[in-house]
């Protein structure tokens, strides 16, 4: 079956995985919306169902939708495979580093009230410093899911 139609994703040397324009248009239109909803779920985890893990899974779903429809090579422009393990390690480092900074500032592990942010009361700090933990969880979940998909492709 030869492709007779000129598509935006049909770049020379970067042939995509499927030739159907319906799937291309749907995936390229949906992936940014899924990204926005993932960020909303991540930032709104204080007040509504959601949080770090769910937001990370939504971000990973957006990247994996691009990988499955546009092919692995084109979606490297969005989320490169060499960055995934590094991003996962950075997320775990943010999580553990927040707890260790709280220890060095005089509190217990993950005791947000002792974090050295001078322009916040400890009550507000206990509210907002959960975002650091959630950021670490989100990065780790997103990067780990994408790297699992890449490893399954190679095997």
């Amino acid at each position: 079956m030869t492709p007779t139609r000129v598509d935006a994703c049909h770049i020379e040397g970067m042939k995509s995985q499927t030739d159907s324009p319906i799937i291309h248009v749907c995936a390229r239109g949906l992936a940014p919306v899924i990204l926005i909803i993932g960020l909303y779920v991540f930032f709104h985890g204080h007040y509504s169902p959601g949080g770090g893990f769910q937001g990370g899974v939504l971000l990973a779903a957006s990247f994996l939708l691009l990988r499955m429809t546009l092919g692995t090579q084109i979606s490297q422009l969005v989320m490169p495979s060499r960055l995934t393990i590094t991003l996962s390690a950075i997320g775990a480092l943010i999580f553990a580093g927040t707890g260790l900074v709280a220890i060095f500032a005089g509190g217990n592990f993950l005791d947000y009230g002792f974090l050295p942010v001078p322009w916040f009361d400890p009550a507000y700090l206990r509210n907002y410093a959960i975002l650091f933990i959630e950021l670490g969880v989100t990065l780790t979940v997103m990067a780990t899911l994408v790297s699992i998909y890449d490893d399954l492709l190679e095997a």
């Binding site: 499927t18 159907s20 319906i22 799937i23 749907c26 239109g29 949906l30």
Partner: peptide
């Protein structure tokens, strides 16, 4: 979302 994704998923499977 359902109005967009469900027919496209069926189209991908059948194709």
């Amino acid at each position: 979302f359902v109005a967009v994704t469900s027919p496209v998923a069926t189209h991908a499977l059948a194709r």
